[in-house]
Design a binder for these strands. Sequence first.
RNA 1: GCCAGGGGAGCUUGGGUGGUACAAGCACCCGACUUGUAAUCGGGAGUUCGGGGGUUCGAAUCCCUCCCCUGGCUCCA
Length: 642
Amino acid sequence: MSDIVVTLPDGSELSVPSGSTVEDVAYEIGPGLGEDTVGGVVDGDLAGTAEPLEADCELRIITEDSEEYLTVLRHSAAHVFAQALQRRHPEAKLAIGPSTDEGFYYDVAGVDLDADDLEAIEVEMDEIIAADYDIEREEQPREEALAIYADNPYKRDILETEAAGDDPVSFYRQDGWRDLCRGPHVESTGEIGAVELLTIAAAYWRGDEDEDTLTRVYGTAFETESALEEYLERREQAEQRDHRKLGRELDLFSIPDVTGPGLPLFHPNGTRVLRELEAFVDGLNDDRGYEFVETPHLFRTELWKRSGHYDNYVEDMFLLDVKDEEYGLKPMNCPGHATIFDEGTWSYRDLPVRYAENGTVYRKEQRGELSGLSRVWAFTIDDGHLFVQPESIEREVTAILDQIREVLETFDLGYEVAFATRPEESVGSDEIWAQAESQLRDVLADSGLDWELESGDGAFYGPKIDFAFRDALGRDWDGPTVQLDFNMPERFDLTYTGEDNTEHRPVMIHRALYGSYERFFMVLVEHFDGHFPTWLAPEQVRILPISDDNVGYARQVKNRYLGEFRVDVEARSWTIGRKIQQAHDDRVPYMLVVGDDEEAAGTVSVRDRFEAERNDVAVETFREQLRAEVDECRVEPDFVDG
RNA sequence: GCCAGGGGAGCUUGGGUGGUACAAGCACCCGACUUGUAAUCGGGAGUUCGGGGGUUCGAAUCCCUCCCCUGGCUCCA
């Protein structure tokens, strides 16, 4: 048998016989490591201890100390769930049960489960864990495996796809129960310290709407009970920052039944924030040579037929008949902007043309998709469309990424970047795709951003760069985006006259810095836990008179010195402690406490929402520093510290 | 659209699985207190139980149906 070369994480190379398993290699490195091995990562893919290595590869051994250990353990927990399920419901057919970032799930068919079943199954799981069964890998010939799953179309499907080939396939066995599985797994069920089943959902086999509907059970598992409790605790805390909860408490917005689903109302407090957000992004667009345009919310469907939305997107559009003619609320702003461009005649000297609009769009998303402000039926995009020569894509996209970065840095947000390339079905020539993708690649390389390639995930009309935010509950939402479009210019027959005096087709760039205002607002609320930076805060300062006698002075401070800010005077006859409590609850950045002493001295006592205090401050001093904090869009109140 | 869970004062909730909706805290209104850095005290008003239909002498409760919310799935030009 020939040797293969295994490259280890430290760069060293090990020559082993082809067909050696992960565990063999671990023992080769050291007996102690061999003993501790629970699996390996082969060329980036998780593999079991008994995975045979047939070719040169990179290998990292996983032990109980590795990050991946939890992944392995959760996969084993999924098996424990499946065994427990089949103990109680032998008729259940297993489909697929992987681990996820937060735990695991198992898709099953042939059983109806409800919340009570989960509890019973959890008890069964605890028994299996307490029994500490060994988990053993075994190999079966393919024919044998197919026979085992004679009445399980899902496992047979797996055997014919992922596990296709002539080699025997692996099963993992515990207590006489077994499951087709690539592994790896922990050594015995007792290693799973704590499990919890979380929820039931419907899922489609292979994620395909046309395939069978399966029952998906989500759960999570940890090495210890305390780690599980910590996780559940963290989840509860995350729920405290949920924008739907804070939105109500801080009186920012509401989505009442009476107005319809996914149609949010922004209250005065929320609208104050939105207006600052608009002003900020309008400023960025102004600086970068955008022209502002305004378009209506409703167009003849002629326009949507021209843009292609009517063919591809009509299911999600709100349509209405007006005097025997069909109109549609706009799901996107681009057709309007393309039409504005089309109304003009352009020379290459005029390009790029950049249009910006805070445009509200309407998309009839599936009902189950609506969620707070993150997925709604009506939302406003800080939309921008650029009409550029193909050769200037790189320069324009660079400028857009700069804008996006300025936004992200200003708000101190975490994000992930994805570069999505040409899908199988697409419009536009090979040349223009190649040129555009290579330009985007260069831009990304120069940007220094960490990004992931999502090959084939681009829009049919062009490649794109997407930025995603994570909400308080760990879900990712698309935010800023840059998309190239070769389709719309065709459909609208957009042209400009080139240097060579012939007509050329511009490339269109769709871009948004926030994405949707609603969603961005959601991200900010959760990111700051309602503690908006002072420049955004609905109420920036609240003046708290010690007694009713000081209300007059409080109003004077507000009107004479702080008229340029959003300031309220707390005039209720509460104790000062109560007023402070309320201001904290309302997350007002600054409280100015004024009593007889301050009134006599013409000062204020400053307290910020994080409890820091500074007494006997001249009002003018406070005003100046507040001005600077707001102008510089500082994220945290820093008057007291600074 | 699919699966599961849910819907009662403005909010957060406890109780009520066929017999007049029983309530708590906060918020709100009234009164007293005039307060020095994270909830002063007392009183009052407010919910026909998501909508509609059915069964019943009687429905928040049982049945049907619709709406909405939550978590997932799918979708996401």
